[in-house]
Design a protein around this nucleic acid. Structure first.
Length: 792
DNA sequence: TTAGGCGCTGTTTTT
DNA sequence: CAGCGCCTAA
């Protein structure tokens, strides 16, 4: 078979793998199209095949712009396309997240918007820190103007392309601020933007905002990119915001070969400005668009598909579609009620261990999904106890760690001297006697002169510090400048290593022999190793090219450690938030922490819209599963260091009884779903002293034997939590004796004094008594918490 | 100027 | 519980 025939053969065979709707979407070449793709309906496959199909029909990969939601999705897509059309073509497609693609374009065209191509991308922490500085400069109270609130308001403005000027002219916004007592909001916004500019920095939203500005103010450039991108594809279209929508619209104007793929039922990013409206806008902008609906689910069992359909049907806002599957019925959804967050962790870990054995499937087939990152701890601990390897996605990512940010701070400052957040971070770490006082002076002067801090410390004599400090400042600027040698020309690792060691940072960490210090040193080594790898990588198309630190820095702010796929794909259980799981699939899915106020989140109970988004999130979670879903919740949980009581999530009850097995729960606790509410208001102090959970009976019928001398692989990515002591302490502390009370007894309570027992219910750990205290009235107390003594 | 201790306060999801 | 800002001692 010659190459051409082979290509034809491949094409024929991959088109045959598609169903009618999929094939129609893939082979639709010219003109706008929208693909509404139900969960598990082969959306990624359609996108990948469509791109492959375009290339096979003579489209130059350089003319294809494919926008994905995460870097990971982009990498996966490239991989798939490479297997269809070959590595060389796949590499040349413009594929990535909105943020990374347009950061790249902004760097290339930086001078058009008065920026240097070395601009820094500020992450959320940098941005918040800058907001705090703005508040200080304006003399505003950060209790009223909470930095995170301010930032999210600014962010939503930017996502809707409302700049400070527009804000000032927008009566509604100004009124809103006035009503809420935050009339200075617009001043903060303006000054914040100004400071970003002085620091030669952009926040995440700026990357999109400034792209719009760039295209608005430079028609020639817009034309250039319109010409360039003959074909545009947008994944997860339901999660794009207005700013992104407009970029796509502008770029697509010339060829109108715009393909958007999405599912309104999986829209879970409205907090980030995502707007369903964009789907309607698309219809308006391209009246002759074609729509394809992918409704056959290939991923999940009938049980899962039907349960998920039932859930989403409870939402009012949605595009009607009929997701179905011809897969097996499969097993019912499991439900487990745990008495504590730790016990929930133990149950899930044990269940995974047992299921793996039973099904002969490896650990990659399992995922634990939770609503908030903070929930990961109990699962990590339980998995470690069973020596089950796991990988934690999200959370405090590698790049967010203090020591990593410190070193990258140096890199950033070297590349962009104006980077104020980097300067603040590095100027006195390691300590060089440039303290708070000096820094404040510098900040005040730079604000007065409307310039960067770097500019100010270049001439330290002018800022009224003593000569010793002035000397230290000029030593610092000299050092930073010396680091810049080779930034654009030498291999990244050489420059990076020199900075790490000459700045004194490496030594500082090396000298710290505490366990945390050692871990930090190792993390720095890991970063340096990563840079070494980057340096050594050879581009086959350009083998003599040097990979510089400047290039390494370009995308570092946009990386999350989910993108650092482990080189060796060792088998591991995945732990992540539901948001992070979007687009992924696993045979066995555990959705945990299904409690009111946690999932749905307490923050989302104020409106129908918010609750519906939580419900879509639950829908996304369910539809990640291929074979089996297991739900769990805990009746008690530590939140913010406090023991709290939870009720089962409403979402559990929203699942049709045919698809869920509630036996495990009702056997333990017949009255669970109608458990009387207990007012714990006054007893709270009492609860703090007692710890629950750890010593509860496990209630597991299938608890596997735990291998005693299983040697755990040392896992770098299994993040040391350093928090084991506390758990162990809690475990070894025996539970207070549970008194055998009977009604009629007189007892004494630490806080409430003497009281008379009226009623005793339940047994063991769950026993509770109704007691009448003359001073307090009638109380219901759980005996395992209440410190009671029997008087007679 | 720095380090360390104390008390206060939020409590979601992410590029 | 964590991360912070504020205070004090050296």
């Amino acid at each position: 078979m010659c190459a051409k025939d082979k290509a034809n053969f491949v094409r024929m065979s991959f088109l045959n793998e598609l169903n009618d709707a999929q094939r129609a979407a893939v082979t639709h070449i010219k003109g706008p199209l929208m693909v509404i793709a139900g969960a598990g309906s082969g959306k990624t496959r359609v996108l990948a095949y469509r791109i492959a199909h375009l290339i096979q029909n003579g489209v130059d990969p350089f003319q294809i712009l494919s926008l994905t939601f995460t870097n990971k999705a982009a990498a996966e897509m490239k991989h798939r396309i490479a297997s269809l059309v070959g590595e060389a073509d796949a590499r040349n497609i413009w594929m990535g997240t909105f943020h990374s693609i347009f950061a790249r374009i902004l760097r290339n065209e930086a001078e058009r918007i008065n920026y240097s191509r070395n601009f820094t991308i500020y992450d959320t922490n940098d941005a918040k820190s800058m907001i705090k500085d703005v508040l200080k400069e304006l003399g505003l109270d950060d209790k009223i103007y909470k930095p995170s609130n301010v930032l999210s308001r600014i962010s939503s403005c930017k996502n809707n392309l409302i700049g400070p000027e527009d804000y000032r002219n927008n009566i509604d916004l100004i009124n809103e601020d006035h009503m809420s007592g935050k009339s200075k909001m617009v001043d903060i916004y303006e000054r914040y933007n100004n400071k970003l500019f002085n620091a030669s920095a952009m926040d995440f939203d700026d990357l999109l905002f400034k792209t719009n500005i760039l295209f608005r103010d430079n028609p020639d450039l817009l034309l250039k990119y319109q010409h360039k991108f003959h074909y545009i594809l947008v994944d997860e279209y339901q999660d794009t915001n207005f700013s992104q929508y407009l970029i796509v619209k502008q770029l697509g104007k010339m060829h109108e070969n715009v393909c958007v793929v999405g599912d309104d039922a999986q829209s879970i990013y409205s907090f980030r400005g995502a707007n369903i409206q964009n789907i309607l806008n698309f219809r308006r902008d391209y009246p002759d668009y074609k729509m394809y609906k992918l409704e056959q689910n290939y991923r999940s069992t009938q049980t899962i598909v039907n349960a998920a359909n039932g859930i989403i049907a409870k939402n009012k806002d949605q595009i009607k579609k009929n997701v179905w599957t011809s897969n097996d019925q499969g097993s019912v959804i499991g439900l487990y009620k745990a008495v504590s967050d730790n016990e929930e962790g133990a149950y899930v870990a044990n269940h995974i261990f047992a299921t793996k054995k039973e099904e002969g499937i490896d650990y990659n087939g399992f995922v634990i999904l939770y609503r908030t990152n903070a929930q990961s701890r109990s699962f990590e601990e339980s998995l470690r106890k069973l020596n089950i390897p796991y990988k934690l996605y999200g959370g405090t990512s590698f790049y967010q760690r203090q020591e990593i940010k410190d070193l990258i701070g140096y890199f950033r400052l070297v590349a962009n001297h104006k980077d104020e957040e980097a300067l603040k971070r590095t100027i006195n770490y390691p300590a060089r006697g440039i303290g708070k006082t000096t820094l404040e002076k510098v900040q005040v002067i730079s604000a007065e002169r409307n310039t960067s801090m770097w500019e100010v410390i270049l001439t330290p004599q002018q800022i009224g510090v003593n000569s010793g400090t002035a000397l230290k400042l000029s030593e610092f600027t000299t050092m930073i400048r010396s680091f810049a040698v080779g930034l654009e020309t030498a291999p990244a690792y050489e420059v990076a290593y020199n900075i790490a060691s000459s700045s004194g940072l490496l030594k500082e960490l090396y000298n710290d022999k505490t366990p945390e210090g050692v871990a930090r040193y190792e993390n720095i080594q890991e970063l340096l190793n990563g840079i070494k790898e980057f340096s050594d990588k050879i581009d086959p198309a350009n083998p003599h090219k040097v990979n510089t630190l400047s290039e390494f820095l370009i995308d570092v702010a946009l990386l999350t450690d989910a993108d650092n796929e482990d080189s060796a794909e060792k088998e591991k259980v995945s732990l992540m938030t539901i948001h992070a799981a979007k687009g992924l699939e696993f045979p066995f899915v555990y959705i945990v922490g299904l409690e009111e106020n946690l999932f749905p989140s307490m923050m989302a109970l104020n409106s129908r819209e918010e609750l519906e988004e939580e419900r879509r999130l639950f829908y996304v979670a369910l539809t990640r599963a291929e074979k089996k879903v297991t739900l769990s919740y805990a009746t008690t949980r530590y939140r913010w260091g406090q023991l709290t009581y939870g009720e089962p999530s409403r979402f559990i009850d929203e699942i049709d009884d045919n698809f869920i097995d509630k036996k495990g729960v009702s056997l333990n606790k017949p009255s669970e779903f109608s458990r009387p509410k207990i007012d714990f208001g006054k007893e709270r102090q009492g609860f703090n002293s007692g710890r629950v959970g750890e010593r509860e009976p496990r209630m597991l019928s299938d608890t596997p034997d735990i291998p005693v001398n299983f040697t755990p692989p040392v896992k770098k990515d299994a993040i040391p939590s350093g928090n084991f002591k506390k758990v162990d302490a809690a475990q070894s502390k025996p539970a207070g004796p549970i008194l055998q009370l009977e009604s009629g007894m007189t007892v004494s309570h630490e806080k409430f004094g003497k009281g008379k027992v009226l009623k005793v219910e339940g047994e063991g750990a769950d026993a509770k008594a109704t007691i009448f205290f003359p001073s307090e009235g009638q109380k219901q107390l759980l005996l395992k918490f209440a410190k009671l003594t029997i008087i007679d």
